[in-house]
Design a protein around this nucleic acid. Sequence first.
DNA 1: CTGTTAGCGCTTTCAA
DNA 2: TTGAAAGCGCTAACAG
Lengths: 336, 336
Amino acid sequence: MNTVNLKQLAKELNVSVSTVSRALRDSWEISTPTKQRVFELAKKMNFQPNPYASSLRKHRSRTIAVVIPEVANNFFALAIKGIETIAREKGYHVLIYLTNEDAGEEMSVATSLQSGRVDGVILSLSGHTTDIRHLVELQQRNIPLVFFDRVCDSIGAPRVVTNDYESGFVATEHLIRAGCRRIAHLAISMELSISHKRMKGYTDGLRRYDQPFDDGMVVHCEDSDEENYKKIRALLSSPDRPDGIFASVEKLAVQVYHVCRELGLDIPRDVKVIGFSNLVTASLLNPALTTISQPAYDMGKEAATILFRRLEKKYILPPEDSVILPAKLEVRSSTI
Amino acid sequence: MNTVNLKQLAKELNVSVSTVSRALRDSWEISTPTKQRVFELAKKMNFQPNPYASSLRKHRSRTIAVVIPEVANNFFALAIKGIETIAREKGYHVLIYLTNEDAGEEMSVATSLQSGRVDGVILSLSGHTTDIRHLVELQQRNIPLVFFDRVCDSIGAPRVVTNDYESGFVATEHLIRAGCRRIAHLAISMELSISHKRMKGYTDGLRRYDQPFDDGMVVHCEDSDEENYKKIRALLSSPDRPDGIFASVEKLAVQVYHVCRELGLDIPRDVKVIGFSNLVTASLLNPALTTISQPAYDMGKEAATILFRRLEKKYILPPEDSVILPAKLEVRSSTI
DNA sequence: CTGTTAGCGCTTTCAA
DNA sequence: TTGAAAGCGCTAACAG
């Protein structure tokens, strides 16, 4: 354990502990020569202040928590990268917690975070969160919360999102214009607002172009990749299979790709596909797969920036405000 | 900030602070009825002990640091997931630091970690680390270090690695048996031991099958994706282009795939490819791309397990020991 | 400009 | 079985 502390530096220099403390924080109350001496010795002894003592005293840990459903997913991985970048810039540390799409785990993480371990939290909801009391509690304990992507509209906290409704609309429009007449929508947990919005964009898109809405064309997917695969396979094996597919998240877009391969369906000749995704994954897929790319990295940066502004009390964004970073429609083939 | 503390509980219950503290830790010194009362009130008031006070007092933070070159990379993302899973099980918290393949950033992270902020560190070296004094310092300050994947052999710390040499050999063998006679090797930073080992597997594989070693067939790649792309493109555009490619990391395997697409080369007809990768990414790629899959998730779990054993002083694995989790050769096409 | 002092909230002797 | 008291290392009044 680290054993160099202020007391030792002070003794060595024949000054008081507080003088050393102040000097190291470059306080204006300390004379330049004293500062010099302190800095030198501190460097020589490789002094690293004990962050926990400081946190205890100041009630600030310069640490934030990032709570996400999963990390083996390019979207969230890039978001973390954005968050970490800003955190480093601002001198903050980042704790990471994975909820594995489990509302219970999310709740226990949030509860433990009430301890004051972190100054703020950046969170993307699990697909099964219905009860948000644990998040309200956090806010009540004065721990600022910022949502990104999978946000919660019924709680006063800043949100960083994509233009989900518009993207859903555009995706649907795109398929219709490409000639599709039976467009399927692959949805995830309807507990999530992003699902609702993307779905609304889909139904409104159909209506706008006078396309009939067919219940059978909406597939509600779950957590199990195997189950989802089966559902998508069934959809595409059916005699009246869709000629267009709108996958509302990356994972499902990838599965569509696999199912088509298995069934020998050509994208986009047999079925046109458009899915939420991001550049990294999209670039690995069949380039005929048109995608809606979310700016994951920038969303992470934005969420962190908003949080740190609150923490540094620069100014407080009204909690009702949300920042919308638009997703981009990326067309990779002239046939769709 | 959290304002429920031991003192308040104590006052409310008319017992001393130490009694409450002991009761909450379920000490045998406290009577059952007292414990009962304490537990009840603690739950009712939603008491969360201040972790920093505890850390300060106990010189243990129940926090570890994970230091990796990047996260937007399935290998590292899965490793984090493994680490986080074990950490949660053991009641530890996980701080994440990204070095962005920069030796300087790695050093500054390691230096700041000397503060005692964490009880231990799990690290995968940046591609440019040559000076490891900052890591030695950590060890000297009694902060256990565990390497994974990109390890350092010249420092006494446990290592969790893939069977890099054997995999390199097998990959090369595989290509030769598939009929390749001009096999290229795409290497990353030779500062890394994984690079050496995979390369050695390659050269030994060639030798074993009496294939000539050709300098021009070894491409040393760097950090810049653009530069790497150009190099690979040049390699594959040349009149005496290789008929087989061994990509030593996932990123490069993906690039090969893109270059082939651009140049209209068919995998595996025109050029056979084998690359280090993992299941998630591999499944997105051309299924003709045979891969060497590293068990990223298990490597993360293993690294965490080793670290926690040291922290809990269960027993100390001799620092020279390394755990080898073999990569699997995944053949996805009968033609290679 | 510098020193003294009183904690932050918790754990842990030591004493009862 | 419980309580009193010291102290982890740092910061911030307050006093000089």
